[in-house]
């Protein structure tokens, strides 16, 4: 820790030093932080609940519930993301980031698995409610897996940048 007196004395620095100081500070703030452990299960559970609710809306012919389900999902996800991004003490700026190819592949696989689960259950039971609930559960679990994978990559990146 720098005490107040020392702080007041350190007034002299060159443009190059100042630029380097600012560059390092910005890079430190932008460094991606791993999400908390509950982020993956939280998003997965929200997705599973949403799909189950959509399935029930179709089955009970209550299509008016669908926009409400969408609004509820958006609200829950926004709250989860808000709390999770602030849990490290730094709320990142919304920037366009390129997803790594393996995460993109895993997301594609998630959609495929969810569709297959929906189709398989629909063939077996013929009920929309069950089909959507199973598809949601599969998608939720898969999303949890994808988030865990992305989190592991972030942790590895931050560990290698600290070395």
């Amino acid at each position: 820790m720098v005490d107040d007196q020392q702080h007041e004395q350190s007034e002299e620095f060159t443009p190059a030093q100042a630029l380097e100081l600012a560059r390092r500070a910005r890079a430190a703030a932008r460094r991606p932080a791993p999400m908390p452990w509950w982020y993956g299960p939280g998003v997965g559970a929200a997705l599973a609940g949403y799909c189950a609710a959509i399935g029930q809306s179709f089955e009970r012919q209550a299509q008016w519930l669908i926009p409400l389900c969408v609004a509820a999902l958006v609200a829950v996800l926004a709250a989860i993301v808000r709390v999770a991004t602030r849990s490290s003490g730094v709320a990142a700026r919304l920037e366009r980031t390129k997803l790594p190819p393996n995460v993109l592949r895993a997301l594609g696989l998630t959609v495929l698995l969810a569709v297959l689960a929906w189709f398989g259950t629909w063939l077996a039971t013929g009920e929309q409610g069950w089909s959507m609930a199973v598809a949601g559960a599969v998608a939720g679990l898969a999303v949890w897996g994808v988030i865990a994978m992305a989190n592991r990559e972030i942790k590895e990146q931050s560990m290698s940048s600290e070395r």
Binding site: M1, V2, H7, S10, E11, F13, A18, L21, A22, R23, A25, R26, A27, A28, A29, R30, R86, S88, G89, V90, A91, A92, R93, L94
Partner: peptide, 27 residues
């Protein structure tokens, strides 16, 4: 320097907690 570091750190994110900025700036 401290003012520059604090503002540069904050310009790299949306917002940051006081203790995180303090630890980064080592003040």
């Amino acid at each position: 320097p401290t003012r520059l570091t604090v503002l540069a750190f904050l310009s790299g994110c949306q917002e940051a907690e006081f203790s995180v900025v303090r630890d980064y700036c080592q003040v």
